[in-house]
Simulated scan of single mutants.
Amino acid sequence: MGYIKVNLDKILAERGMTSKELAEMIDITQANLSILKTGKAKGIRFTTLISICDILNCQPADILEYVKE
């Protein structure tokens, strides 16, 4: 069974944005964004994913990657 790798740090670095800035822009706590970034989240709301993609001008596949073990 595989897992989902979250590449949010990579996209943030490419955009020159901090996690704190993104969290404020999408109106979630830094703690919840950290849980997502570290791959510890059990899920993500589509509304949150849409907001992230809108702000970072990217596609969901840029952020989420399926890794087969």
Rank of each mutant, 00 (worst) to 15 (best):
M1L: 12
G2F: 06
Y3T: 07
Y3F: 14
K5W: 04
K5D: 02
V6F: 08
V6K: 02
N7G: 05
N7H: 09
L8H: 05
L8Y: 05
L8E: 03
I11F: 00
I11K: 14
A13M: 10
E14K: 15
R15H: 01
R15G: 03
R15F: 06
S19N: 11
E21T: 15
L22H: 05
M25Y: 03
D27P: 08
I28H: 02
I28G: 02
I28R: 03
Q30L: 06
Q30E: 08
Q30S: 14
N32H: 15
L33D: 04
S34K: 10
S34E: 02
I35A: 00
I35E: 10
T38I: 10
A41G: 00
A41M: 07
K42S: 08
G43F: 13
G43M: 11
I44R: 06
F46I: 14
T47P: 00
T47V: 12
T47H: 08
T48H: 04
T48E: 03
T48A: 03
T48F: 03
L49Y: 01
I50K: 14
I50V: 10
I50E: 12
S51I: 00
I52C: 09
D54I: 06
D54E: 15
L56H: 06
L56I: 10
N57M: 05
N57K: 14
C58D: 02
Q59A: 05
P60S: 08
P60N: 00
D62P: 00
I63S: 03
E65R: 10
E65N: 10
Y66L: 13
V67D: 00
V67T: 09
E69P: 12
E69R: 12
